[in-house]
Amino acid sequence: MLDTIALAVSAVIGLSLLLNLGRFMIGPHMLDRLIALDTMYINAIALIVILGIFRGSPLYYEGALVIAMLGFVSTTAVCKFILRGDIIE
């Protein structure tokens, strides 16, 4: 039963990833794309955790942790770039 639920839940998360991809495509500003990417990171973590439950293996946890950290650092770095890098003050 849990396998079925895990598959259905993966489908729902796939749908939200598609929605994020849509926002990533239409933009309109770079910041909108950035926030879409950030949400995709979170959805990817969820997907990996569900894969771990589906396979019954706790090994996927490290991957989830690395993605969580990379997502935060990269989003903050791009924000800093937008804040300091390209605008003439």
Partner: peptide, 30 residues
């Protein structure tokens, strides 16, 4: 219990993504 938590989580993830997709300006999308 696992299945219930999974479904609640998936629903909230979907709601967040829908919000990101359809809200009209950047501050609301946040």
């Amino acid at each position: 219990a696992t299945g219930f938590c999974l479904m609640v989580g998936a629903i909230f993830l979907l709601v967040g993504s829908i919000g990101l997709f359809r809200l009209p300006d950047f501050y609301m999308r946040l």
